[in-house]
Amino acid sequence: MQRVKIFDHVILLMGVFIMVGPLVVALMTSSHEAADIHRNGLSILPGGHFVDTYTKVLTKEGGFTGKITGLRMMMNSLILGIGFAVGKIALSMLAAYALVYFRFRFATILFWMIFTTLLLPLEVRILPSYEVMTALNLTNTYTGLIVPLLASATGTFYFRQFFKSIPDELLEAARIDGAGPFKFFIGVIVPLSKTMMAAIFIIMFVYGWNQYLWPTLMTTDESFFTLVRGIKQILLVWVGSNIPDYNEAFALAILAMLPPVMIVMIFQRWFIKGLTESDK
């Protein structure tokens, strides 16, 4: 039997405290009134306004035009997150499929070109990207929000490595079985990549969900605002004797965190499999 080691547990508990502590504080503080928070600071004990605050955050029509609700922002964030994840998976799988299974000139050079250029963060190419999107009249659209960020070096790289680990004989068997490139992709490659797709989905969903700069640039219409922007918006009312709605900001932060957490929890088993399993 393994001895229970107290010191190990102390370390674990400290880790838990450091990571979960701020979240608990945020959750608890969000259930107080804004004035209380302004007067007493953060609190770790629940206040009495939990339900009010969250109902208000989700349904109150706010913002500059007074038409945007928390629910709407949440939906926008979801569209962005899922659109990102699905689009990136589709695009990078196709790119990796072409790179691994089709012999064309300069394939390796092309791959490294894609890889190095896309390693540059969005911020580096944000102005040209913005220019292109305005020229195409895609500002204030979901297309404009999602499409420019779809090309993914990380995704392409992961899928390329994964496809390379699939034995060649499988391709050969499929060729003898009369499966063309399309049938092989749909019938063999896609089902085999399930765990990999789950892993990439999580990473990309969270990435899309947390986007701030690009949506800020691309959308001026409030009906396209995402949760992450909403939080910022609430704290912007610091004028005159107004007290910012701290409680609402905290509530939004908690809400903004929930979907990624849920996604990670649901996909976690596949996620770990996808990143570690290669015995295909």
Binding site: P167, E169, L170, E172, A173, A174, R175, I176, D177, G178, A179, G187, V188, P191, L192, K194, K280
Partner: peptide, 29 residues
């Protein structure tokens, strides 16, 4: 093309489709 040559091949590492049942493996071609 290999599929049109009217041949069938048995590979050293079997090359079965791991995500398909035995039935589907046999039926795929």
């Amino acid at each position: 093309e290999p599929a049109e040559r009217d041949i069938a091949m048995v590979f050293q590492n079997y090359a079965l489709y791991p995500h398909m049942t035995v039935y589907d493996n046999l039926a795929y071609g």
